[in-house]
């Protein structure tokens, strides 16, 4: 992997770009979006969260991808106890997937940060499908017994995001200044029941 793309990370810049993005008024496009979500109990303490993800890259990201920029997506799922004020997060799981163009055989590489599995797809659509599949399944382990006993009191929440800080710094600044991208999607929540 080229070291350049992974080096431009950092919270402050993300915050700065977020601030700049907030200041920018033009409408923004979502790189990823959860269309639907459900879950399935694997055992008494494990839930598999399944997300129906719509992967549609805006032109700026497609262009960046075609020009060698690595895109990184992150899915996050949580088990929360609903309260009047604030929420308790009882379990949390994240998954990150990278997408990049492999010029040597003109394919797209889909890799996960946490495992060595590589998907090689000839088209961008296939690659996005592969990304969606990888991000669309998250396991929440070691759930409290109360979740199984009274699932109505608990909520599942999930969200997807383009990892903004993984973009090259000039692109972060440019996108932040122009307001082309949003860094994250709002939480999607549904009951555990």
């Amino acid at each position: 992997m080229p070291g350049y793309s992974t080096a431009w990370r950092g919270g402050p810049l993300a915050a700065l770009c977020g601030l700049l993005a907030l200041l920018a008024l033009p409408a923004t496009a979502h790189a990823v979006e959860i269309r639907g979500a459900n879950h399935m109990w694997l055992d008494d303490a494990t839930v598999l969260v399944r997300l129906d993800i719509d992967m549609r890259l805006p032109a700026v990201l497609e262009d960046a991808l075609a020009n060698g920029v690595t895109l990184e997506f992150e899915a996050e799922a949580r088990l929360e106890r609903g309260r009047r004020v604030g929420r308790d997060t009882l379990a949390r799981e994240t998954r990150r997937v990278q997408l990049q163009y492999f010029a040597l055989n003109r394919h797209y590489l889909v890799t996960a940060v946490t495992d060595e599995r590589i998907d090689l797809k000839p088209t961008l659509g296939d690659a996005l499908d592969a990304v969606a599949r990888r991000l669309g399944r998250l396991r929440l382990d070691e759930l409290p017994e109360a979740a199984r006993a009274n699932p109505g009191e608990f909520d599942l929440a999930a969200r997807l995001m383009l990892v903004y800080s993984a973009l090259p710094l000039p692109l972060q600044l440019d996108a932040g200044l122009r307001g082309d991208l949003t860094t994250r999607q709002e939480w999607k929540r549904w009951s555990l029941d």
Partner: peptide, 11 residues
């Protein structure tokens, strides 16, 4: 790298 560098020239 070169393509990315060239692509990021404007930004």
């Amino acid at each position: 790298d070169y393509r990315e560098f060239a692509y990021l020239r404007g930004p």
